[in-house]
Design a protein around this nucleic acid. Structure first.
Lengths: 178, 178
DNA sequence: AATTACATGTAATCCGTTACATGATTGA
DNA sequence: TCAATCATGTAACGGATTACATGTAATT
């Protein structure tokens, strides 16, 4: 899914400005599986407007740039529906943390434990954020997705907490060199 | 973690060619949290060689391009250790599937169920692949990472199987318009 | 007969981030 | 007073993919 479809989808949840879209992607229910910067969102909105998929109304503000509120057009709704008919591409999960663990033999056990502890805390923060989102957005789809995210974060935290010892204990019990 | 560090890490697990590194990243224990193409791997190996972090010996083959086997140098080992001291950047998880679910109101219930069914099958394939990896690579770090991946895939599949009905049932029980 | 696996490498291209440009308001 | 929030937009830059280029051998 390219950034344009993402914008269409977000606008299907309600009218929004570029700034608000950025916020949703950076902090909201989207934050754990997508990302986008102003440098990609604003041009995308411009192009979508040119293509007639969204419309734009300006709201004048005192001492601020005009707020540009975008809405899906019927053409845009159709475009979104067509995009959602196509099979989603497989996930892209990039994790420096997991990569680092794989190279554990090049790291001291203390550093490994440190890495895992930081990671467990990171999951705790994510869980807190998702729980907050859950209480705010209690309707169907977003609730489902947030609960999905919660399960994932909890599963990761549980695994790391329960299994970290298998990595930090000296794994010299496999005398396999030749 | 940039691609160069990834190569250093992979070479810390044993000597390899560019072709083999690509295979590990595309099919092996790395496949569910990293990705890289020939177009990025080969230039990275060239640069790492120039920088003295890895060395290269050519193995002549009959009717094939010379196989270039790379090995970490002491300097490269140090470089890798330093890189692993730095905190890993937060994960990047991109999921078109989850994005599509969030826009569920623009999709028919049948299509949603179809999407979820395909996804559950996808997880089943991933689980099978990881289980195969588990039996092949029974040593410390990679075992840990593969088991981590298994837990994640299983948690996702379980959630989707158990909870899909909350998405596909008509969610008209929230009469919230205005 | 055709596709996949083996094996390396470069160039064009895409996509997106980061940094820049501008500037008021609010909270710490 | 300094940072963060609100608000939009462009240009430079970076990183990686895709396609191209080449060719054999094994498998289906």
């Amino acid at each position: 899914m390219d950034i344009k479809t993402l914008c269409l989808g977000i606008l299907s949840l309600g009218d929004a400005t570029g700034y608000e879209i950025k916020k949703m992607v950076a902090e909201g229910s989207f934050s754990f599986f997508s990302e986008a910067s102003f440098g990609s969102i604003y041009p995308a909105l411009t192009k979508l407007t040119e293509q007639g998929f969204i419309s734009c109304r300006s709201e004048t503000q005192n001492n601020r740039p005009d707020k540009k509120v975008y809405s899906l057009t019927p053409k845009g709704i159709k475009e979104l529906e067509e995009a959602l008919e196509r099979s989603p591409k497989p996930d892209k999960n990039r994790s420096e943390f997991l990569a680092a663990l794989l190279f554990a033999e090049a790291i001291s056990p203390a550093r490994i434990q440190n890495l895992i502890d930081e990671r467990v805390e990171y999951h705790a923060r994510q869980i807190k954020m998702l729980e907050d989102l859950l209480s705010e957005a209690p309707n169907g789809a977003s609730r489902f997705v947030v609960e999905y995210g919660l399960k994932m974060q909890q599963a990761a935290a549980t695994f790391l907490t329960e299994q970290s010892h298998t990595l930090t204990k000296k794994n010299n019990e496999s005398p396999k060199e030749k």
